[in-house]
Write a protein that binds this DNA or RNA. Structure first.
Length: 796
DNA sequence: GTGTAATGCTATTGG
DNA sequence: AGCATTACAC
């Protein structure tokens, strides 16, 4: 036990830790010991006697949560720390949603759709609706839906929201509201939530069920939110609702580091926190412990160019240190070589290790030239982000089988694996299944289960293949509660033919794919053996309160024998929420140079830092030049980048680089101009020449004219109003009562949700598999399964 | 229905 | 340049 933790804090940090009750805002400058404050604050709460069950701490990554838990465990006790609720918004509320899923008509084992799943579903909908994919690009449609959800606009509300509909009309995409509506219904039918739904549906729960709001308000009496500047409206409302009763809400953030506006983060959440909680205690952590004076000064001078910010003065007692080192290259490949050479030299000069270095870039695509150069120099590296392990095709394929076994309604999993490895169920059959599923409002899998009753125009051989597929998946499902994660996962990999399919491919890529699948199975093995959860240890949390620490101690000692079996569905629960940072091997102390985007570097620090590709048309990204707000976010991004450095920061740019396969020329970023030249060491003569006064008048004129354009715009630009909280609509209703349809007879007039009214011309098959042929006034003749179709008898 | 060749698109940032 | 979707031959 460590009782001296308070002595490891400075005055302000200590006050922030000890101010445990009521609303608190901690404005934490870069490198000001924020993590330490958060950690000790939680520990302090527990020491004061607050039950860890009542503490909720929302972090930006799951890795951060795990590390913090470990550190807290060292101050209090491991058993107590284990009972904390700590994790990202998405993982914490996914967990709660699984518990409360029934309230929303969702199954407990709902699937979490990742971005690829969402786009694929949108593509399917576009095809069905005959909407041009060129105009309605899935990524654009999805981002529109996403921002609607993040502003708590349900599909129904969206369709009635004049502002939203007008925006879509003006952008030439008036059907987005319609697509949103269908998308939402399809997700519901598939028992799936996308990332935004996890937050949206949490809001629905807390809004529509007073008992639940009460329950979680009582449970989470102390709430802390890290990186508050990056929360969106949906997250904001969740926090506000949960904290409404006890008001013990502590948010930590730095407006200067708000870099997620593109996914709905609202910097206003932190800028106007005071208005929400008038009796707020504010603490400003301004002393930087991380970086040299030069680095702090450069960061300060650059960020000063932004208008929107809270007053603060970040300073440090650290030595002045090296100047910012500026290097110019002529191509992106040369840039890589220069960086690799500098790392090589610095390692010798400073006796540094690979792990002391990081290379940061604006876009993932820039990693390649860096990788190549490092490889040639024999410097080991690791890449964060980009294609993560779980996004690889072979992994997604196998996970597709797991997903379908756990949730047979999962449409995206179905489409992915129904014919992979190929088993003779081709596009035309799937097309027919899709239509039948839509007409009867059932999932694709349910349609397959009833493939004979639906009697679609599919030849009998294929019908048999579909039935075999159904039987196979059902046999997997049946094993879920019986076998542990590894045994079943391995069984599925073999029985499905997937492992075999990969094994016969002897190309280097094929071998690598096979090995990746083995690695996944390996992970399953470790999970089953109880070595570690997939990444998130929320699994340990219980929603029910436990009496005292006695119970916990018991739990701790009670290992091996009494441990319940770890099953495949448990393993799969949080898979979609894992990021690269959560991967096990990235936590180990491997001695490698880190490569990542600036976004991914948030919260990290490195002694020797390289920021590469600091060029106009790349950083700031051209997409962000249209408004002052976007440009300021790019500048904050630069601020985040530079403040990752502890001892030395090197900035590089290139005068040309390959983009889309062709060489394009580029010039240094305006952000370099914004650094006072007294802080810069021009590392090579090329760079020095570029910035000599008047050396390149044309280039300077260009840049100032760009700036002017932006300034003009900002005059007319008003601060965008916070989107009003339009009441979100309740999630879809439950099943329709079809029992009265037993009395349905030929000649009756019926009404269908989509096809309108029509006359029954034929009935075949006994209840409950009765199939009706209906001639609709508008939609023509359709065949519908009574047990699924929402038919209403209008006239006998 | 399946496999291969040609075409076309993409690259902000991420849970 | 690399990947995904499409077109076409079998």
């Amino acid at each position: 036990m460590n009782n001296n933790y308070l002595e490891e804090l400075n005055q302000v940090q200590r006050e922030a830790v000890e101010c445990t009750d009521g609303p608190v805002m901690i404005v934490a400058g870069a490198g000001s010991g924020k993590t330490r404050v958060l950690t000790y604050r939680v520990a302090h709460l527990i020491k004061k006697g607050i039950d860890p069950f009542h503490i909720l701490s929302l972090t930006f990554t799951n890795k951060a949560a795990r590390e913090m838990k470990d550190r807290i465990g060292k101050i209090v006790s491991k058993g107590e720390a284990r009972n904390l609720w700590m994790g990202t918004f998405h993982s914490v509320f996914a967990r709660i949603l699984r518990t409360e899923a029934a309230r929303l008509g969702y199954p407990t084992n709902f699937t979490i759709y990742d971005t690829d799943d969402s786009k694929s579903l949108i593509r399917t909908i576009l095809k069905e609706q005959g909407i041009d994919e060129k105009i309605y690009k899935p990524s654009i449609v999805l981002s529109r839906i996403s921002s609607a959800k993040n502003n708590l606009l349900s599909a129904q509300v969206y369709l009635q929201n004049e502002e939203a509909m007008n925006e879509d009309k003006l952008s030439g995409k008036p059907k987005i509201g319609l697509i949103y509506d269908i998308y939402h219904k399809r997700c519901f039918r598939a028992g799936a939530m996308d990332f935004d739904d996890l937050l949206f549906n949490t809001n629905v729960l807390l809004r529509d069920f007073a008992d639940l709001l009460n329950k979680y308000q009582d449970k989470f009496r102390y709430i802390m939110v890290d990186e508050y500047q990056d929360t969106n409206f949906s997250q904001y409302v969740i926090v506000k609702q949960l904290a409404a009763k006890f008001q013990n809400i502590c948010v930590v953030g730095d407006d200067a580091q708000s870099i997620y506006g593109f996914r709905g983060a609202n910097i206003q959440n932190i800028l106007s926190f005071e208005k929400d909680y008038p009796d707020l205690h504010t603490f400003k952590l301004e002393q930087n412990y991380r970086s040299t004076q030069n680095i702090v000064n450069v960061a300060n001078t650059v960020i000063k160019n932004n208008q929107d910010q809270l007053q603060k003065n970040v300073w440090t007692e650290n030595p002045a240190g090296d100047l910012i080192y500026l290097l110019k290259a002529h191509t992106d490949n040369e840039e890589g070589q220069i960086v690799a050479r500098n790392i090589y030299d610095l390692k010798i000069d400073k006796m540094a290790n690979n792990r002391d270095f990081a290379i940061l870039y604006r876009t993932n695509a820039q990693s390649r030239s860096m990788e190549e150069a490092l490889r040639k120099k024999g410097i080991e590296y690791r890449i964060f982000g980009g294609l993560s392990f779980y996004q690889r095709k072979e992994i997604k394929d196998l996970l597709g089988y797991y997903r379908l076994a756990i949730n047979p309604s999962d449409e995206e999993a179905f489409k992915r694996i129904v014919n992979f490895p190929t088993r003779g169920i081709g596009d035309t059959s799937i097309e027919k299944i899709l239509i039948a599923a839509r007409d009867n409002d059932i999932s694709l899998f349910t349609a397959c289960e009833n493939i004979t009753e639906l009697n679609l125009a599919i030849n009998s051989g294929t019908v048999q293949k579909i039935q075999d597929f159904v039987t196979m998946i059902q046999s997997f499902s049946a094993l879920l509660p019986v076998q542990n994660a590894y045994d079943l996962g391995d069984h599925i990999a073999k029985t499905s033919g997937l492992l075999h399919e990969l094994h016969i491919d002897k190309t280097p890529e094929g071998v690598s794919r096979y090995e990746n699948v083995l690695e996944l199975l390996n992970g399953l093995k470790e999970f089953s053996d109880g070595a570690l959860p997939p990444a998130i240890d929320l699994n340990e949390n219980k929603l029910e309160f436990q009496d005292t620490n006695e119970t916990n101690k018991e739990l701790e000692e009670n290992t091996e024998e009494s441990l319940p079996m770890r099953t495949l569905d448990q393993f799969m629960q949080d898979i979609a929420l894992l990021t690269d940072a959560d991967k096990k091997e990235n936590n180990e102390d491997v001695d490698r140079v880190s490569l990542m985007t600036i976004h991914a570097s948030k919260g990290l620090e490195f002694p020797y830092l390289f920021i590469v590709g600091v060029e106009e048309n790349l950083f700031p990204n051209p997409m962000s030049l249209l408004s002052r707000a976007d440009l300021e976010e790019e500048r904050r991004l630069f601020y985040v980048a530079i403040t990752r450095a502890e001892k030395r920061a090197t900035i590089t740019y290139s005068s040309s680089r390959y983009r889309w396969g062709t060489l394009t020329s580029s010039e240094p970023s305006r952000f370099i101009d914004e650094i006072d030249s007294k802080f810069i060491e021009y590392g090579n003569s090329a760079a020095r020449g570029e910035f000599e006064e008047g050396s390149n008048p044309q280039y300077l004129v260009n840049k100032s004219s760009t700036n002017k354009k932006i300034e003009q715009k900002q005059k007319f630009e008003t601060v965008p109003p916070r989107k009003n909280l339009v009441k979100a609509s309740t999630a879809n209703a439950g099943p329709i009562d079809n029992t009265n349809l037993k009395s349905l007879q030929v000649g009756m007039t019926v009404k269908h949700e989509r096809f309108g009214t029509g006359k029954v011309v034929q009935l075949e098959g006994g209840f409950p598999n009765t199939k009706a042929t209906v001639v609709f006034n508008e939609a023509g003749q359709k065949q519908l399964l009574l047990k699924f179709a929402k038919l209403e008898i209008i006239e006998s």
